[in-house]
Design a protein around this nucleic acid. Structure first.
Lengths: 327, 327
DNA sequence: TTGTACGCGTTATCAG
DNA sequence: CTGATAACGCGTACAA
């Protein structure tokens, strides 16, 4: 391995000077040139591990998400990455599987690996980022707030999204509108359902909301199972609000299975349907600014990393009801 | 920060002993107990950076993929992750955007960050992993071979997949079957197209293959544009083989746009359509074992990491034609 | 401005 | 089986 000493020797300067050149401290032009040339010919690459040990922190930020296979989170990751790498940070993507134990593992890695900061979509339940905070590391929660956390947060306006999705169905003439959402220890799931409930009670104060609310997981399977369940009711709903993209896919598949596709049974989805194939009937979607939420979180984190002491903030991003699905 | 010295002091042993206990070397039971207790009450977490600097390598594996938003690669990532973490390694997911410069950056990070090994889907063009190999680091190529590389490789049987997709369309009665594939410096794109061409010429030796072959990017946009292009021909194809999932989605959307959906114009897709909504007409798919390819690559890497000197190998995994798309 | 020398936290070597 | 000590590669006081 070629070290800073090798470069120093070849350039006939001290290791300290090499270090200074590489870090943009003031060095006489001629020496700097010698150093750069030596570094170049030796193909010297600074050892990040040593640098990190010395500096006490690396230029890496961790992004912890519950599911790499959910397009919402990969889009979010893109947003984070674009902003982060622009600022010279690289990204470590960690998959918590919505599991607190795995999440803790990754948090430990972030700590013991001296990572600069962490952007986290907290796993279902009570995420604990106190150790990070205690070490003075920057933390930003995204998509979901962290339970007892005193951390910057970026979320969607989930209640509104649920409300909007419900409204569009109501206006299309549906009256018994159910809701399939995620686990009730996942905040966006709860909030979107609350938006739906508020909308329904607003339209019809006698609507038996609890009867038409289902909690599944935030995956296609959950959407499918819950939809089948709803369709088997004595008085099945005539439409459904799917609280996320994958639930939407699952629900529509269940509808196909039961032979009651839109517009027979209506559906509106919160969160864009990824890679949607053209579908017989247009499906209203409350499009969430997924990439944007990541960029926003990244900017806040970078701000903290550069020493900002502004008070802890929460940013709420609004979704947008898209005209019935285009190509 | 609580260090190994703090633990040693509290347990009244030497730092060396603490290290030994934590790394499972033989230590007298009583001392070990004291150490563990001390570490526990002090909430000691070993510093990975220092450990890595000393050991000259970390327990981290880098996975470099061209597109986090392509479900094929996220599924692959899952496969890698499952196997890796089982063996005590954590995964760093890196997004190259199919860009050689970004890829090189991540390769540099892998080197300078002392990562244990790299699993890479080489970017389009000529990836260069020589520096890694020169440093004796383990490297496994997956999905695509690395240009001049002498590295273990795991790929799909792409030619066969292309062939199978074509055959199923031919057997369904289509005769002028086009092919939309990826960039011609991406191996799987080329191989799948070759499979298609071989199949068509086998069925009809006068088939003007070049006329009906299109190269787009491996994304929905490419599929859509190329499909529209095909449909505008004087003698448009009556069916098309989409060489990957996203191209398939794009092509079908183009068909919808042009009002000639299956079965009017036929389509078969190589690679599973993610989150597919139920579609009027069943779409034949050559399902690729995406997760499996990742697991296989990870196992090979782990094998190398544990010192295996077996000759460089290439594993070819076969896809499977699924009966027209289920739920 | 430049060089010398030390320390970041850990593991490995070498005596005992 | 245990302890003292020397690295790992870098950045930075401190001295020149």
């Amino acid at each position: 391995m070629v070290t800073i000493y090798d470069v120093a020797e070849r350039a006939a300067v001290s290791p300290a000077t090499v270090s200074r050149v590489l870090n943009g401290k003031s060095v006489k032009a001629e020496l700097a040139a010698r150093v750069l040339e030596a570094a170049d010919t030796l193909a010297y690459v600074p050892n990040r591990t040593a640098r990190t040990l010395r500096r006490r922190h690396s230029e890496v930020i961790a992004l912890i998400i519950p599911d790499v296979e959910n397009p919402l989170f990969t889009a979010l990751a893109r947003g984070v990455e674009d902003v982060a790498r622009e600022a010279g940070y690289s990204l470590v993507l960690c998959n918590s599987d919505d599991d607190l134990a795995k999440e803790r593992e990754y948090l430990d890695i972030a700590i013991s690996g001296d990572m600069a900061g962490v952007i986290i979509v907290p796993a279902a339940g009570e995420s604990n980022v106190d150790l990070l905070l205690a070490k003075g590391r920057a933390v930003v929660a995204v998509d979901r707030p962290v339970a007892h956390g005193n951390v910057d947060t970026v979320v969607f306006d989930n209640a509104r999204a649920g409300h909007d999705a419900t409204t569009v169905l109501w206006e299309a003439g549906y009256r018994r509108i159910a809701c399939i959402t995620g686990p009730n220890d996942v905040r966006p799931a709860v909030d979107r359902a609350m938006g739906w409930q508020a909308a329904m009670l607003g339209f019809d104060s006698t609507f038996p909301a609890v009867t038409y609310l289902r909690h599944g997981d935030f995956r296609t399977r959950g959407g499918q199972e819950m939809m089948l369940d709803l369709l088997q009711m004595d008085e099945p709903p005539d439409a459904v609000v799917a609280a996320n993209n994958l639930i939407g896919v699952g629900a529509i598949n269940a509808m196909a299975q039961a032979g009651t596709l839109p517009p027979t049974t209506g559906i509106a989805v919160v969160g864009g349907l990824p890679y949607a194939l053209p579908f017989g009937h247009p499906i209203p979607v409350v499009h969430l600014p997924t990439r944007h939420i990541g960029m926003s979180a990244a900017r806040i984190l970078l701000d903290r990393l550069s020493g900002s002491q502004s008070p802890v903030s929460t940013v709420v991003l609004r979704g947008e009801l898209t005209p019935p699905t285009p190509a």
